[in-house]
Design a binder for these strands. Structure first.
Lengths: 351, 351
DNA sequence: CTGAAAGCGCTTACAG
DNA sequence: CTGAAAGCGCTTACAG
């Protein structure tokens, strides 16, 4: 807990302003917060003096006295991922507009680091926490770091283990199952019958949901999914390129692959290119996220748009709304994702 | 200044722990900060009680009393841009490891919003500010928001106007001119003679530097740059695609284009594709930044790597070092960028 | 309309 | 080794 911290230079305080104007600190405080109780003349004199001395409001002191807070903690598993960067931008936009400040934490997908980050952030007394948890992080540990009272909004993934009944959190989740269902149905409608699900970790929340959506859509169409047609990878391009071999080496290859996300789809395309296969023509595929590259890749990638910046705004709004009502039951929000069709990545099967 | 803020729930404080253990607050405080002065037994009892009651340290109160700070403000012009997202991730990594917390602000490239963001952040009393300024932001206004005492590190761009002698800031800049010089020389070495500089705003700091680097390299090679060979655009893909027409409609086209950055290069490639031109073959090009897409695009894009995450770490280290020495003169750091050659984007000219 | 006093949750000399 | 008192920079009743 005790860490090195920097000393502060001497600052202008209310006392300096009050002394210069010949009024009390209380009066200056009232001016600062725009109270109508103060005489116009006095107000003008005080404001001029604030300006002149370069006074900077010490919100920490005010928060301490008023028992309020003016920050929101945002903890994401990977800021380097454009999806989460956009999400963070959306959060900060709304948080800032509400007069709060965003405390940032990035966990690099490590549950250990997440624990340390939460412990550090919570000491700064945020009004609430928006958490996109690292893989494998547990409800009990998170609650341990945050305490039972902290308003908490979970984004994108669930924690492992149960939410304590006493401290339900809010959630904002993408409708992964339905989204992947749309992609799968699109491929089926184009004539594909042998379809694989490629990439992602099977046990992560979105992984489970996306696989489930895929399997359900296949079942509805009465299509079989051979066991080799479910291939795992880390949810990034590099590992996906590696894992592609498993899929591409099958004696009976699929004609199409529903991919866990765009990064994984791009990794698969990369691997195909290296083998002289043409993505789209030799294997149709779809992604998830609609990252910028999806439109740019060749062929353009059919994918599911999640509007991460808008999700960030939404998450911030949900959490800010919660601050006023700490004791109401946890609220679960699921947002639909939209199929973005780029024909070139999923033509009908060759033969 | 007065904005809505959320009320705090009743919290466990030092007083609760002290009362439960039958010791004074001072003793608990010493335990918290690991002082060796406390009796082993007392320490153990206090620690057990801290755990039992779920005590959360109030760092704001401690900072107030000790006149210290434990946060760093990070203000970027666009978090949605992967370059700045990576930079932010690097900053947060080092800031967090030093026991500080990152206060995030995103300005969306608006000098107005930047002013508001700085004003809000500074009230939270950060130890210093890392600023990647919005285009067109002025030194005087920034100093006005931050006060003369605030340690400040400028990243990537300069402010307009002079730094006051009393308050020099540190800078961390990319060696734009030299980087673009490398790219230009590479194209020249491959046999190109008619080379354009494409995209970016001519008056932004990096825009000026990159153009200057291009012109200097052309001059060294005694090559002419017709006036139509300098084309401006916003530094993003969309506007670059629009601006491409100016370049591609020239009666005497260049055989190669040195692009302001990767986004702009990708926009140019997009526009070429729409006209049935093949990037690389019909017009060689280079980028700047080495974003992920540069490797993935087809053809792969020759570009300049800036290692934004490492730049973020470096910025945080520079600022943290400055905290201990507030009065030493401002320090200017320029880091080299590295040419990443992907042959396919810049073959020799066709004829 | 303005001021004197108390207090938010900590830490820091200073006694003992 | 532990406790009583003062104070960081604000705000909030309460008097006047």
């Amino acid at each position: 807990m005790p860490l090195s911290h920097a000393p502060l230079r001497r600052k202008v305080t209310l006392i300096d302003i009050a002394a210069a104007c010949g009024v009390s600190r209380a009066t200056v405080s009232l001016v600062l917060r725009g109270s109508p109780l103060v005489n116009r003349d006095t107000r003008a004199r005080v404001q001029a003096e604030l300006q002149r001395q370069g006074y900077i409001y010490n919100r920490a002191a005010a928060n301490l006295r008023r028992r309020t807070t003016s920050s929101i903690a945002l903890v994401v598993n990977d800021l380097g991922n454009p999806f989460f960067a956009e999400f963070a931008a959306g959060v900060d936009e709304v948080v800032g507009a509400a007069g709060f400040v965003t405390l940032l934490g990035s966990t690099g997908e490590s549950a250990e680091r997440q624990q340390a980050v939460l412990g550090s952030l919570v000491e700064h007394n945020p009004g609430g926490v928006i958490l996109s948890p690292a893989e494998g992080s547990e409800a009990a540990r998170v609650m341990d770091a945050l305490g039972p009272q902290m308003p908490l909004l979970m984004f994108n993934r669930e924690l492992e283990g149960e939410a304590p009944a006493s401290a339900p959190w809010d959630t904002l989740m993408l409708d992964n199952a339905r989204g992947i269902g749309l992609a799968t149905e699109h491929l089926i409608a184009r004539g594909h019958r042998r379809i694989a699900f490629f990439g992602g970790h099977a046990r992560s929340t979105p992984g489970q949901q996306r696989r489930a959506g895929f399997l359900a859509a296949m079942k509805r169409a009465k299509l079989e999914v051979p066991s080799g047609f479910l291939v795992e990878s880390a949810p990034n391009r590099l590992d996906a390129a590696r894992a592609s071999a498993v899929l591409l080496d099958l004696r009976t290859r699929p004609t199409a692959a529903v991919c866990y996300n765009d990064a994984v789809a791009l990794g698969l395309m990369l691997a195909m290119g290296r083998r002289g296969m043409r993505p789209g023509r030799d294997l149709a595929l779809t992604g998830f996220d609609d990252i910028d590259e999806a439109a740019l890749a060749s062929p353009g990638l059919t994918t599911l748009a999640t509007a991460p910046r808008e999700r960030g705004r939404q998450a911030a709004r949900l959490l800010l709304a919660r601050l006023g009502h700490p004791h109401e039951p946890g609220q679960r929000t699921t947002v639909p994702v939209e199929l973005v069709i780029r024909e070139s990545s999923c033509p009908p099967p060759a033969a």
